[in-house]
């Protein structure tokens, strides 16, 4: 199976607006600070390999030679102790949840295939993620009470996508307007677009 992403907004790049009134200084500062991935300081070598593999399965980017990096930002958030304001009583704090969840994913791979998660091909890794999501665990002890689906969806995937769509490539591929201050938008109606928005998307069904 060849993985392919069909982009409706090919050629649109929110960064083309960098020097226009859609960007202000503080937004440029934030995006500039996000261009270089931070160094790894939180995860161990082993955890890091599983995390990279998980990010590649969560947000595969077969069309990119230089894919958007997500793992370094997750590492930086956990190193900084950045929270979400909620700790479910049956979950450890985010750093511990990540460590335990990545180790458990790796254990699931070993239990099913005799190799680590990072050494699986895409189809096998995807199958494990789907199994974990449906509660079908091959090595329940490895999870040590961590709710597997909740870890996968609310700790891991939610964090990964929040980083992916905070990057200009993520914003551009969905035709999102991106930064919009001080200039916002004028044309609000159905199918109406301002000249500084993505042109109409290429939709196979339209």
């Amino acid at each position: 199976m060849t993985e392919r992403f069909s982009a409706p907004y090919r050629g649109y790049d929110v960064l083309d607006k960098w020097d226009t009134p859609s960007f202000n200084d503080q937004t440029r500062r934030v995006l500039r600070g996000r261009m270089d991935p931070p160094p790894r300081r939180f995860f161990s070598d082993t955890e890091w390999r599983v995390l990279l593999a998980l990010c590649a399965r969560a947000m595969p980017q077969p069309e990119r030679t230089d894919p958007v990096a997500m793992a370094p930002f997750i590492d930086a958030d956990l190193h900084a102790g950045r929270g979400t304001g909620t700790r479910r009583a049956d979950m450890p704090e985010p750093g511990a949840a990540w460590r335990r969840g990545l180790a458990a994913l790796d254990a699931e791979a070993v239990a099913r295939h005799g190799r680590g998660f990072a050494d699986l091909d895409a189809a096998a890794a995807n199958a494990i993620l789907r199994a974990v999501d449906s509660g079908d665990l091959a090595d329940p002890a490895a999870w040590d009470g961590l709710p597997a689906q909740r870890f996968l969806r609310e700790t891991a995937l939610k964090h990964i996508v929040s980083i992916y769509y905070s990057q200009p490539q993520g914003m551009s591929e969905i035709g999102y307007g991106g930064p919009a201050s001080p200039r916002g938008y004028v044309r609000l109606g159905t199918d109406r677009i301002d000249p500084w928005e993505a042109p109409h998307g290429q939709w196979p069904d339209r």
């Binding site: 069909s6 982009a7 969560a58 947000m59 969806r153 995937l157 591929e173 969905i174």
Partner: peptide, 26 residues
Amino acid sequence: GDFAGTLVTATGAFGLDLRERMARYN
């Protein structure tokens, strides 16, 4: 980011399936 979080929390979608769903954002 907010909508992608809603999608993964509600459906568990990931991979190209998720990227394609998000591509319909507009």
